[in-house]
Amino acid sequence: MRNRIQELRKKRKVTQSELAEAVDVTRQTIISLENGKYNASLILAHKIAQYFEMQIEEIFIFDQEGENIC
């Protein structure tokens, strides 16, 4: 699973702390999401999508090969 959080955040000049505060998680979680070390739950993905006023699939890109799904 890839995501465009960092790209969207920088485009809107939002800091990691501000985004973390808005979606009720720690800044470390945002850092891990941006680095691709952690995959967001459906609830968090929904909150992030709401924050950026976009669809979930526009932010979180499902990589079929990466997820090892046939």
């Binding site: 720690t26 470390q28 891990s32 967001a40 739950s41």
Partner: peptide
């Protein structure tokens, strides 16, 4: 609350 409810921390 953020520290304890944070999904990554729980995971």
């Amino acid at each position: 609350w953020l520290k304890e409810s944070d999904e990554r921390n729980r995971a």
